[in-house]
Design a protein around this nucleic acid. Structure first.
Length: 109
DNA sequence: CACGTGACCCTAT
DNA sequence: TATAGGGCCACGT
């Protein structure tokens, strides 16, 4: 089941997003080896059972907009200290997760 | 099988 | 930064 593997990978990647940081759908799609499947990432996350404990609230679109129809996401992000420009947008400039940082950490920078 | 939809993204203006 | 148009992929009808 490629799709299930894709979903698992997305869940894994999202779970790696540190608190106080956010990632974009395109970013996750790229990391999952499917740069053109940002929509799939959104689809997968939209159907992610809460019992999996995946912090999907740390995922926003490339403009920093929170998911439509899910106002709670904003509160969750605010609770982690993520600054908002307005009701729908976060300040990606200062909160965007940069996976390479993790690589550097592991490599012993 | 065709068509519409969606928690998206890229390029051009 | 905002809008408009096109592309992508999986799913439901």
């Amino acid at each position: 089941m490629e799709r299930q593997k894709f979903a698992d990978l997305i869940y894994y990647l999202v779970s790696q997003i540190p608190q106080g940081k956010v990632a974009t759908y395109g970013q996750l799609a790229f990391l999952a080896g499917r740069p053109k499947c940002a929509r799939m990432v959104g689809y997968v996350l939209s159907r992610t059972p809460s019992f999996l404990g995946v912090p999907c609230h740390r995922v926003v679109n490339r403009l920093g907009c929170t998911a439509p129809g899910w106002p709670q996401q904003r509160q969750l992000l605010l609770a982690e200290g993520i600054p908002f420009f307005n009701e729908e947008r976060v300040d990606l400039k200062s909160c965007l997760w940069q996976p390479q940082q993790e690589v550097f950490n592991q490599g012993g920078k």
